[in-house]
Amino acid sequence: MATASVSAPPGQPDITYTPDFDKYKARTQRRLATEKLEQTLPPGFPSKLESEFVWDGDSIKESGYNWVYELSAEEIAEIEAALDQTHNGAPADVVLAHIKDLSTTADAALIGAPAYTTDKQVFHTDAGDVVALLCLQTAAEGGTSRVASNWRVYNELAATRPDLVRTLAAGWVQDGFGRPDRPYTTRPLLYHQPATSTAPERVIIQYARRSFTGFQALPRTPTIPPITEAQAEALDAVHFLAERFALGLDFQAGDVQYINNLATFHARDGFRDSPEQQRHLVRLWLRDPEYAWETPEPLKARWDELYKGVTPEKQVFPLEPKIRSASSGVAAKTVSG
């Protein structure tokens, strides 16, 4: 899909949504040669996380661990019976969206997120605690779904580039893409939660690359502060480490993925559809209040938008794919005139 050429905002590093390994390595070499980088982690941060959340694709394959759970006939019958029941009116913590290429059916000038294209979707996290993806149809070619451990990436950075851990744990200017009430927000991408009497030590990484680089119809807003060279390197480091440690999934029609969004990155290869076979997923953002991890303070406002006060009357379940307002260039075009 062709992408319009958009000038970078003043002061913005040479970085785009699509990671460039050569530029990443050149930036790393330049910074190591010309800057005095921090050699220690932020106070209290672990030098190494030890947990089942630390894994990589090779170790998963070698261990023979089976991450696929196949429903029995009895379980399928139970689910179908539940679908026949009227909802009892209790709040349901769900947000639904279709993930499908809309570049051939919608105005391409309105697409501001890779979810609605056939482009490669780089490693990122969504909003919310758990990402559930139902595969309705696979692509004619490509589109492999990939996951990677945040904690494995953290361990590598802590051991080799503690300065980038500091960068990730500092404030980042996240683009609001034309929201007049909130042109941008500032928050860390990495959060450390020390162990308590009720919870183990945790590290949470929450980020979407396009919030700092822009994507197609939603380029980086030129009137907000640019990211720094250190932040540009950190974005690439996270992506390429996640790519190195990732596991590719054989995601077939009828399969459902449940991803711990607080401990796992996910990504998608570029793909090709055909008239007969078009990649189509349905996504839910879920939360289990009983087992939920503590939400970092800077994320609570966004989490409240997803989960607080959810009622059946307020929920919308679109039957057909459409571009979410947060991923559309309409708002940005309206503000910029």
Rank of each mutant, 00 (worst) to 15 (best):
R31V: 09
D163N: 07
R182G: 11
A331C: 04
L41N: 00
N260F: 10
Q39C: 01
T105D: 14
L37Y: 08
T264M: 15
Q216V: 03
P183V: 07
K120H: 05
H280F: 13
S103F: 07
Q29A: 14
A267S: 15
L262M: 12
A106Q: 10
Q137W: 13
A139H: 10
A97M: 11
R287A: 13
L37P: 09
F212G: 02
I111E: 14
K23L: 06
G248M: 05
D93T: 01
L306M: 12
D129R: 02
V95D: 09
G254N: 12
W293Y: 08
A132R: 01
R30F: 05
K61G: 11
I111Y: 15
Y291E: 05
D304V: 01
R182F: 10
N155T: 05
R220Y: 03
T311R: 14
S47T: 08
L136D: 10
N150P: 00
F45T: 00
R30C: 06
P9G: 15
W303L: 06
H98V: 00
A331S: 05
K300T: 07
Q315T: 10
P219L: 13
T138E: 11
A81C: 04
S328C: 11
R30Q: 11
G64R: 01
T117K: 15
D255A: 09
T167V: 12
R202Y: 03
G337R: 06
V203T: 08
D84E: 13
D58I: 15
F240E: 12
Y65Q: 10
T221C: 07
P42V: 00
R187V: 00
L286V: 05
P225W: 04
Q12W: 01
G309S: 04
T40C: 08
I76M: 15
E276K: 08
A82Y: 08
G270R: 06
W172T: 07
A139P: 02
L110I: 00
K23S: 15
T185F: 10
V122M: 03
Y116C: 06
A148Y: 00
T160K: 07
A237L: 04
G112K: 10
D56F: 12
V95S: 03
L110P: 09
Y184H: 12
D273K: 04
A132N: 02
Y154N: 01
G11A: 07
A253G: 09
L37H: 05
D126S: 06
R27I: 01
A26H: 00
G89M: 10
M1E: 02
P188E: 03
Q231Y: 02
A158I: 06
A97D: 06
N88M: 09
V6G: 05
P180N: 13
A217W: 01
